[in-house]
C-alpha cells in the first residue's frame, strides 16, 4: 500500500511538471503580442492575451496565470498601475511579473522593481533572452 502511495505521489509530481505553465501577455501592440504568443506556444506554454491594463487585471484574477508579461505603456491602465494592483492583492502573490518597456531604462527599471515586479526587459528584446527570463521566473 505504501509503495503505491509513493508511486502515485511521484506520478502527480511528474504530471504537475508536464502541465503547461500559464502565461498572460499584456500589451496593446498587436504584432508584438502575435510574436510573443507564437514563441511561448511553441515552447509549450498556455498563453492568454490582454490588450489593455484593465483587461490584464481582470484576466489575472479570473485565470490565475503563473506569469504576466506586462507592457508599461498601455491604454486604460498602464503596466505600473497593474503591477501595483496585483501586488496589493495577497491572493495573487504567487503570480510572477515580468515588465516590458520600450522607454528609457534606469528610472523605469527601479520604479517597476520597486512596485514589486520580478523582472524587467527592454524592447526590442532577444527572443532567446525573453525565454530564458521566462523560464527563470517560473523556476524551470
Amino acid at each position: 500500500m505504501r509503495r503505491l502511495q509513493q508511486h502515485s505521489g511521484l506520478w502527480l509530481l511528474m504530471i504537475g511538471e508536464l502541465m503547461s505553465k500559464k502565461i498572460l501577455i499584456a500589451d496593446d501592440e498587436q504584432n508584438i503580442v502575435i510574436s510573443i504568443e507564437f514563441l511561448l506556444r511553441r515552447e509549450g506554454f498556455e498563453v492568454l492575451i490582454a490588450g489593455d491594463g484593465e483587461e490584464a487585471l481582470a484576466k489575472v484574477r479570473a485565470e490565475r496565470p503563473d506569469l504576466v508579461l506586462l507592457d508599461v505603456m498601455m491604454p486604460r491602465m498602464n503596466g505600473f498601475d497593474v503591477c501595483q494592483a496585483l501586488r496589493a492583492d495577497p491572493d495573487l502573490s504567487a503570480t510572477r511579473i515580468l515588465m516590458l518597456t520600450a522607454k528609457g531604462r534606469d528610472t523605469e527599471v527601479s520604479k517597476g522593481l520597486g512596485l514589486g515586479a520580478d523582472g524587467y526587459m527592454t524592447k526590442p528584446f532577444s527572443t532567446k533572452e525573453l525565454l530564458a527570463e521566462v523560464r527563470k521566473l517560473l523556476g524551470m
Partner: peptide, 14 residues
C-alpha cells in the same frame, strides 16, 4: 524612442 522601438520590437521578434 518608445515609438521608434515599438515596430522594431516585432521586426526583431518575427
Amino acid at each position: 524612442t518608445h515609438e521608434l522601438r515599438t515596430p522594431l520590437t516585432s521586426i526583431r521578434a518575427f
